[in-house]
Amino acid sequence: MSDGAGVGRRPTLAFPINPGGWYEGGSSVEYHTNDWRLERPVVNLDKCVGCLYCWIYCPEPAIVPLDREGRGPSKVKVDYDHCKGCGICAQVCPTKAIDMVPEEVGARWGSSRGSTPASAGHSSRGTTPWLTL
């Protein structure tokens, strides 16, 4: 099937192709990795002493200090849009204030904003982390 003159047409994208391939920093927050998760960390705020060990050991970061501006102890919440469920936070917590809870099928990708299941990342570029050179 021929589409005539359309053969040389450049598709449109939802984002700019910046000359030289630069991009504004921090844009990856739009990319959600919650569907990688099999277990979710749940913080027991009664046990949490605000030491921030979970925060400094989180590879994402998906641990959010409740007091982001201050310098005192701060309890934390989990960014469920980005947490991949590795379980390091539960492992390093000195007061065992974080439990890893299995995600339930159907609800397991729920975001921190509510129970709406988030899509598997916002783009169609796939979520495979094992990109080879």
Binding site: L13, I17, G21, Y23, E24, G25, L131
Partner: peptide, 11 residues
């Protein structure tokens, strides 16, 4: 800004 990003077949 970030420079020299990786680009997949879509871009």
């Amino acid at each position: 800004k970030s420079f020299g990003l990786m680009s997949l077949p879509d871009t």
